[in-house]
């Protein structure tokens, strides 16, 4: 139990009569690269919202590093080291790419009104270190040439990259990626996949919701399958590939 970074107990959420999430027990170990798959409407994004605090569960418990975070504010969860991205990419459109990164990388102490008003040297030093880090990450992700463009001018794929860059600038322990490959061309998808693998290799725990099964099978260490809010399968890619429940969930029951 102790090496479980995130564990979920009896987590339930419904919208009206619709049961969005109903998960008995699920936990994620440190360093794992896990994919969450399932047909449309399976509750994958709601599951992410519940564990990252963006929605509150009807009942049940989520714990992060042994702490119950069921009713913790999203920003506090993020500060505990669990950072998420969004299915519909949320970049700061009317800020430049570098500003997007600087904002995300700077800590709350650096953002304070008083420090900004006094323009202390410590803040200037912090900012210049941050800028270096941001440049490094932008170059790693091939968006360095766009540093001074407004984020709204980026292509869909570049926005995905920017969102990823923004999520990793603070070196999170856990990354929740909500469809990192959606609407991205195959070449860029390759790049993003290898980036995700690389991040996983550095020890970051990654949970990923993704529809691209081929990609999921290729990079995941573990796959969790949700259907109609419930957990129907959990295992290594090869097990999932042949699991009858999973095939039924995607293709429907075979007529007898």
């Amino acid at each position: 139990m102790s090496n479980n970074l995130i564990s979920v107990n009896n987590l339930k959420k419904s919208f009206g009569g619709l049961k969005a999430v109903d998960v008995q027990e699920l936990s994620f170990k440190k360093g794992e690269l896990t994919s969450i798959i399932g047909p449309n409407g399976a509750g994958k994004t709601t599951f992410f919202d519940l564990i990252s605090g963006f929605q509150s569960a009807d009942s049940g418990e989520v714990s992060l590093k042994g702490k119950n975070i069921s009713s913790t504010q999203p920003y506090k969860i993020a500060r505990m080291g669990m950072v998420r991205t969004f299915q519909l990419t949320k970049v700061f459109d009317r800020m430049t790419v570098i500003e997007n990164l600087l904002f995300s990388g700077s800590n709350i102490n650096n953002d304070s009104f008083l420090k900004s008003f006094l323009k202390l040297n410590s803040q200037k030093l912090y900012e210049s270190n941050l800028k270096e880090k941001a440049n490094q990450i932008m170059n790693d992700l091939n968006i360095g040439h766009m540093a001074d463009s407004y984020a709204r001018e980026l292509s869909g794929g570049q926005k995905k990259l920017l969102e990823l860059a923004r999520s990793i600038i603070n070196e999170p322990e856990i990354l929740l990626l909500d469809e990192p490959l959606a609407g991205v061309n195959p070449k860029l998808a390759e790049d993003i996949l290898s980036l995700i693998t690389k991040l996983s290799d550095t020890g970051i725990t990654i949970l990923m919701v993704e529809h691209n099964i081929e990609a999921v099978m290729k990079i995941s260490e573990r796959i969790v399958v949700l259907a109609e809010g419930s957990l129907i399968a959990d295992g290594v890619p090869n097990e999932i590939r042949t699991d009858t429940n999973v095939i039924e969930a995607y293709l429907g029951k075979a007529d007898e």
């Binding site: 504010q73 969004f86 700061f92 800020m95 953002d111 900004s116």
Partner: peptide, 25 residues
């Protein structure tokens, strides 16, 4: 031009993303 002003503009653009970055919007 300060980090504080930058944070306000980020709130203007997308509050959810601000929260996801660990900032108290």
């Amino acid at each position: 031009d300060s980090p504080w002003g930058r944070a306000l503009r980020a709130v203007r653009e997308d509050e959810d993303a601000v929260r996801a970055m660990g900032k108290n919007a």
